[in-house]
């Protein structure tokens, strides 16, 4: 390797091809057919994209809280991977919501230079977010973080696997890519739940505490919103009730093998997160996520 040329090449090169992420802002859905399928209300479609996109964005933010604090360097890399995958899914889904005109009140604050995905991520109020309580909850310790990731990834994988056949071509494409990613997330979390559940006395206690803290949050996933019901009937979305058996089966299998007690499944309840009802932990998370962008609404980054 010739040392002068390496540095000079990167100091002088103007060719964008060498940049890891490109130098301009690429429209994330560029080249994809974004026509809304016949008989589907674009407002419903956009609202559904926000549900899946906000789940990904909020969980990515929670996982990112572990960066520089993780138990091992290998885990910094792994958690970074999972968060990056979820951020990528969030960007596509929020861009899709924006492309069908679902921007909520974000455009009242965001200037035109802010792309849709950022208008939605940075300029909506907590009550406009559509994520479930499962992803918004605090991380807790590493055991609870991994139990939550296991539960969230199991649900998401079951949903994305079905969405590969969605009548919306954009959702189908996002799901096809996402299935591979989320299968890894679920596997990574399951391996940790096994190690912690069947590791030492302390790790078993912490893993069980994590399970007991996470399980009640699953109530927020049991009942479809009206939007999900309508879109499921139209072959576009997945009714969350349809994946519950699969989710319970996977989680029970992992917990059994991890020598952890499986709590009773929480009784079905009316959706909360999906209709914008959140606890203070989401407002706090969004305060950090949105603060800088909101201080400079006319800035480009």
């Amino acid at each position: 390797m010739h040392e002068e040329t390496v540095y000079e090449a990167l100091a002088n090169a103007q060719d964008d091809g060498h940049w890891a992420f490109g130098t301009g802002f690429d429209e994330p859905l560029a080249g994809v057919d974004t026509t809304v399928p016949d008989g589907v209300d674009p407002t419903d479609l956009g609202a559904y994209c926000l549900m899946l996109g906000d789940d990904a964005l909020v969980l990515a933010q929670r996982l990112t809280q572990w960066m520089t604090n993780a138990p091992e360097l290998e885990e910094e890399v792994a958690i970074g991977n999972v968060a990056l995958d979820l951020l990528g899914q969030a960007r596509l889904l929020l861009a899709r919501a924006g492309s069908v005109g679902v921007l909520g009140r974000s455009r009242e604050l965001a200037t035109d230079s802010v792309p849709d995905e950022d208008a939605l991520a940075y300029f909506r109020a907590p009550g406009e977010f559509r994520n479930t309580a499962l992803v918004a909850a605090e991380n807790g310790d590493f055991a609870r973080t991994m139990v939550r990731l296991l539960a969230a990834a199991t649900v998401r994988l079951a949903v994305l696997a079905r969405l590969r056949d969605s009548r919306d071509p954009v959702l189908a494409a996002i799901a096809a890519k996402g299935v591979k990613e989320v299968a890894y997330h679920r596997d990574h979390a399951a391996r940790w739940v096994l190690r912690l559940g069947d590791g030492t006395g302390e790790s078993h206690r912490r893993a069980q505490d994590g399970v007991d803290a996470v399980w009640p949050l699953l109530a927020d996933l049991s009942t479809a919103t009206d939007v999900e019901t309508r879109l499921a009937a139209a072959g576009v979305a997945v009714d969350p009730a349809d994946v519950l058996d699969e989710v319970r089966g996977v989680l029970t299998q992992v917990l059994d093998q991890a020598t952890l007690r499986v709590p009773e499944w929480p009784p079905a309840a009316a959706p909360r997160g999906r209709v914008g009802e959140h606890g203070p932990e989401l407002a706090e998370l969004l305060g950090t996520l949105q603060g800088l962008a909101r201080q400079h609404p006319a800035a480009t980054w």
Binding site: G80, G88, D118
Partner: peptide
């Protein structure tokens, strides 16, 4: 946690991950 756009957040996260 405070990166001002989702693209910048992805770029920075990938970088910090590279350092690990």
């Amino acid at each position: 946690l405070a990166a001002p756009s989702l693209r910048r957040k992805s770029v920075l996260l990938a970088k910090v991950q590279d350092e690990a």
